[in-house]
Design a protein around this nucleic acid. Structure first.
Lengths: 180, 180
DNA sequence: TTAATTAAATACCGAACGGTACTAATTTAA
DNA sequence: TTAAATTAGTACCGTTCGGTATTTAATTAA
C-alpha cells in the first residue's frame, strides 16, 4: 500500500513490490494476484485503515459539525508531510491517475469517492435536522464540495504550500457552511 | 498537448506521439527533444492557450469579483466533458502524476500553480481595495483556496459527478467569499 | 530413511519502452 | 547534370516491463 500510495500505479514496478514485500515474484502472483489486483487490494487496505475510521469519526454525533469536518480534512492533510507517510489521499491520487478510461479500477475508485460523499451527506443532513446547519442548505452540494477538498489540499500541498497555508485553506472551506 | 493532457505523461508513449504528430521518431527528437522536453512544451502550450487567457479574464476589473471567479472555475469545468477536449486541468492532472519527487517537471508545475495562485491573489487584493471584499478577508488563504478548486472539481468530475452537481459545488466555493 | 508434496526462488519469456545509428529520398549548390 | 547537404524514414539498440515455466529447497507422510 505505501509503495502504491507513494509512487502511483504506473510508476510502481513488480520489482519494487518484490523488494518491499520480501516475497519472490511468483509468490506475489500466487498470493495476491497480478499488478492490478494487488493495487486494488492496496486500495481496500487504505479504505479499511484510513478512510473508514475517518468517516466513522465524521459520523459521530458528539463532535460539532464544523469541528468534525475540520478533523476529516486535516486528517487528510497531516498524512501529507513528515513522518514516513506518503503525500495526500491515496484514493484521490489514484482517481487522477487511473480514471482516464472506464476500467475496473476506475469504477472501484468512483465507488469509494461516492461512499465518502455519502458519509458527508449523511452528517450534513443530520446537522440540518439538529439545527446545526441552516435549513435552506444544499447538503448534496456541500457534501460534494467537502469531498473535493481533499483533492484541493493535495494539489496545493504538491505545489509546495506550507502546512500553515493549507490550514488556512481549510478554514476558508469551512466558512462555506451556512450556519445562520 | 491533447495526448499528454488526455493520457498523462507515463501512459503516453513515443509511439503515440509519432502517430499523433505525423512526424517520424528521429524527427521528434530533433525538433522537440526527448519525451520529457516534449511534455514540458505541451505544458507551456497549455499555459499559453488555456491558462493565461483565463487569468487575463480573471484580472479584468470590469467583471465583478464573484462572477470573475465563477467564470474562471467553470472554464475549467467545461473542458471536462463533451467536445473533443480531455478532462480537467492539464496542470492539475500533471501535478498529481508528476509531483511525487522533485525533478525539473515538478518544479515547473509548482511554478505554474504559483502563478495561478498569484493571479487570484492580485484579483482578490484589488477587490478588497475596491470594497468588493470584506476588509478582514484573508486574501492569501482565499487565493490558495480558489486555486485548489480546480483540483476539487477535477476529482469529482472523474468520479462521475454530473455537470449540474459540479456547478453547485462551484456555488458553494463562491459562498466562501466574505462580501459583507 | 525414503518418497511425495508443498513451498520458494532462479531463470527466462515475449512485448513494449525510450532513444539512436544508419540508410533512402529530397532539396540545394555548383 | 552532377555533387553536396539536408531532410525524412527504417531498422535496430539495450533496458525494463509484467508475467510464468522450471528447478531447487523444505516439509510432510510413510
Amino acid at each position: 500500500m505505501q509503495l502504491y500510495w507513494d509512487k502511483g500505479f504506473e510508476r510502481t514496478s513488480m520489482a519494487d513490490l518484490v523488494k518491499a514485500t520480501g516475497m519472490a515474484k511468483p509468490g506475489l502472483y500466487a498470493n495476491l494476484g497480478d499488478k492490478e489486483q494487488i493495487f486494488q487490494k492496496a486500495l481496500e487496505h487504505y479504505d479499511e485503515t484510513v478512510v473508514s475510521p475517518m468517516l466513522e469519526k465524521l459520523l459521530s454525533p458528539s463532535t460539532p459539525l464544523k469541528e468534525a469536518l475540520r478533523q476529516s480534512l486535516s486528517g487528510m492533510m497531516h498524512s501529507l508531510k513528515g513522518s514516513g507517510l506518503p503525500m495526500g489521499c491515496f484514493v484521490i491520487n489514484s482517481t487522477f491517475e487511473c480514471s482516464r478510461e472506464k476500467d475496473r479500477i476506475s469504477e472501484y475508485l468512483a465507488q469509494m469517492n461516492a461512499k465518502r460523499r455519502d458519509a458527508y451527506l449523511e452528517r450534513l443532513d443530520h446537522a440540518k435536522a439538529d439545527g446545526e446547519l441552516s435549513k435552506g442548505a444544499d447538503t448534496l452540494a456541500l457534501a460534494n464540495f467537502f469531498t473535493g477538498q481533499s483533492a484541493a489540499i493535495g494539489a496545493m500541498a504538491r505545489s509546495g504550500l506550507p502546512l500553515s497555508e493549507l490550514d488556512a485553506m481549510v478554514e476558508v472551506a469551512l466558512s462555506a457552511l451556512p450556519e445562520d
